[in-house]
Each structure stands twice: as structure tokens, then as C-alpha cells.
Design a protein around this nucleic acid. Structure first.
Lengths: 209, 209
DNA sequence: CCGAGCGCCTAACAACTGTTAGTTAGGCGA
DNA sequence: TCGCCTAACTAACAGTTGTTAGGCGCTCGG
């Protein structure tokens, strides 16, 4: 009894956690621990409520996961779209690509638990959940395809590269950073530059003979 | 009883499944479904035995997973090492890198359920299992670092790229193909060429003015 | 000041998890 | 033929999972 009294006073603010609170916690836990090992009871405990209470806000665990996945894509999509459209009309291809790459990487590594959770758990989640997230995902992919196609038509990109494949390679490579990126070892900003350097110009020392 | 008799005759060869049989099945299931959703009972059923029987060959589920992870790295390590060392001594940097990239991708996409399982589930597995797999992993990483360093010292690679980071980028990008590669849409061989093209020379159309 | 309802809690369920103990059928060497 | 070893099997355990039903307190509009 002393416990519950203490808990009331010391740690629990009287404000409700709410749907968004649960979602934030879930996104963070999914990002940190993956899908399978994060149970509703873990989410509830981290949110300071009990497992059953989650069902006041969500109809099922899958509903939570789908929500997290969708928000994750929306954040990175908005971020990338806005970064590119903020550039002057006559911006060169290289600058545009650097902006898009930077925006994606920033959302993934700095900005959003939702985006990193999406990348982390998408491959672990039941088929039905993946399907529910697909439309949102496709929209972001289309954004990239449009961007890359425009640059290729302009003659800025090599003409023989398949756009779909290029997009898969690029986003795949960027997303893979989530497995090893350590903010203590270097900023996302610097990493973004390195990725752009490599993808734009390659790693071979050019023998301009 | 009819059941068990039928089963005996029709599907179960009288030869024992054995430790290797269980391991093969486990690798395939882990590759296909991830770590969390594959239970010992699923592995047992796919192998045609009962869950408890697995404990004759392995001391725990983690022991199975560690074995799968280790074999996965060893396969890709051997494959890459052999592909590179098979080349003549005076082979150019570009050819060497293409061979290494091709070997890694082939092990991942064509050759081995163990290697693909490793890439797929490493991030989902308990910390202790990851730790057990680390030595094997580090040896493969060192192999790449040695290769890349030698090429850089030779002057074949741009001198300002950090080797560790380059290796992380490269392997990360290659491993990411596992999420979307579809053998019906193109061979691993062709994909390997595209990856080498992009990493070696970049995607920008060169204006050699 | 009172009722409505929002946001949470308690308790339990059935299913599933990894794991253990004890048992058994069959083949091989002595 | 005897006895051992291999590779299974059966049955149960304790814990965890997602999920449901019903109840309780606090806040706010009338």
C-alpha cells in the first residue's frame, strides 16, 4: 500500500497516457528490441499502465504495429519531400540527390523512432501487417522513383541503370546503417555525405589518363 | 494407428533425421520466417520428429541458433576468400572487388540458407546469441578490411575513405538485397554486376569536359 | 451537485513457449 | 543371444502471450 501511494505521488503524473503516449512508447521499444520480443505487457509497463488498458485505445497488437509502421513512412516521406522541394528550381542533380539522401538518413537516425522502428521490424511482422503498410510504403517509393527518373531523363544519371533497382539499392543501403550506426562515432550528417560521395562517384581512384 | 502406419510407410524414410537434418530445417525456417515466429515445435514438425527429440541433438534453442549463425558466416567467408585467392597475383583492383562482391552475393542469395538466415535473424536474436556469433563475424569482417586496405594502399581506392565505414556500407548494402531480391526478376549474377558498377564508379553521368 | 463517460484496472482465458524426465524401438558389436 | 547405444517418443511443467469482460475513480458539462 505504501508502494501504490508512493508511486502515485512520485512517478505517475495524473495526466492520461493516451493513445499517442502508448504509440510513442511502442515505437521506441520496437526500434530498440524488435517485434517479437516486445509484448503488450512490456509496452504497458513502459507506458506506466496495465496490459489490458491498451485495448481501450487499440483493437489488437497488430493495430498498434500498423500504426507505428505507417507513421514511420509518413515521417521520412514528408522529410524527404520537403527537403527536395525547398531547393531552388535550377538546382543541380548532385545537390538534389544529396538533399534526398540526407533527409532519409536524418529521419532514420536522428528524427524518428517510428521510421527506425519501421525499418527494423518490417521484416519480422506478420504478412497481414506488412500488407496494411504497403500503400504508404509504395507512395514513398514512388516519390523516389519520380525523383530518380527525372534526373535520369535530364541526363544527369547514367542511362543504363534501372530506376527501380537503383532505388532499392539506395534505400536498402541507407536503411542498413541502422544496424551499426553509432552517434558517438560520427554524426548522421557526416555519414550522409559519405554515402552521397560513394553513390554519386564511386570508390575507385580515377586514373584520368 | 492407421495414421502412424501410413506415415511410417509413406513419408518417413527410416533413416534418422539427425543433428544436421534438424540444423538444415532450422536454417531454412529462420531464413523464411525470422527468429521469433519459429518455435522448436515448428522445426520439429518440419523435420518429421517431435519437439522433445530436438534436445537429443541440442541443449537449447539458442544452441541451434548459434550453430546456424556460425555456419552462415563460415560459408560466405570461405566463398569470398576462395573467390579472391583464385585470381592471378597481378589482378587489377576492380576485378578483385567484383569477385568479392559476387562471392558474397552468391552465398547470400543462391548458395546457403545458413548465410541468408544469419543476415535475416541476427538483429532479432538475444544478446547472448549475438555475442556467441561475434568471433566468427569479426573474422569475416577482418577479411574484408584486409582486402580493402590493401587496395587502398595500392592507390586503387580513394585515399580519404575510412575502411571500416566502407566495409560497413558495402556489406550492409549487399545484405539489404535479401529483403527484395526475386530470382524471377533477374539473376544474382546480374545484380552483382550492377552493385559493383555503382560502388566502383557511381551513378552520376560523368561530364568529361 | 450530480450523472456521464473517459481512461484506466483486475482477473481470468486458452493457446503457445522452451524445457525436462522417463520410456522405447531398432540395429550393431561382442 | 545379450546388452548397449542411438534416436527417437510421450507427457508434463511453469511461464508468457494476446485478448476479453466487468468494475472503479476522477473530471467535466449541465
Amino acid at each position: 500500500m505504501a508502494e501504490s501511494a508512493t508511486r502515485r505521488v512520485s512517478e505517475a503524473p495524473r495526466t492520461a497516457v493516451g493513445r499517442d503516449g502508448v504509440l510513442d512508447i511502442a515505437a521506441r521499444l520496437f526500434r530498440e528490441q524488435g517485434y517479437g520480443t516486445v509484448s503488450l505487457r512490456k509496452i504497458a509497463e513502459a507506458a506506466g499502465i496495465k496490459a489490458g488498458s491498451i485495448y481501450y485505445h487499440f483493437g489488437s497488437k497488430d493495430e498498434i504495429v500498423v500504426a507505428v509502421l505507417d507513421v514511420g513512412i509518413q515521417v521520412v516521406h514528408d522529410n524527404m519531400q520537403q527537403a527536395v522541394s525547398a531547393l531552388p528550381k535550377d538546382t543541380g542533380a548532385e545537390t538534389i540527390l544529396r538533399a534526398a539522401i540526407g533527409a532519409h538518413l536524418r529521419a532514420l537516425l536522428d528524427l524518428s523512432d517510428y521510421t527506425s522502428a519501421n525499418v527494423r521490424i518490417f521484416g519480422q511482422v506478420p504478412q497481414s501487417v506488412r500488407d496494411a503498410n504497403l500503400p504508404t510504403r509504395r507512395a514513398y517509393e514512388a516519390e523516389w522513383d519520380t525523383l530518380l527518373s527525372r534526373l535520369q531523363e535530364r541526363g544527369a544519371l547514367k542511362p543504363d541503370v534501372d530506376i527501380r533497382r537503383l532505388r532499392l539499392m539506395l534505400i536498402g543501403a541507407l536503411n542498413a546503417t541502422l544496424d551499426w550506426f553509432d552517434p558517438d562515432r560520427g554524426s548522421a550528417e557526416a555519414l550522409s555525405r559519405t554515402y552521397a560521395d560513394v553513390f554519386l562517384n564511386g570508390i575507385l581512384e580515377r586514373q584520368d589518363s
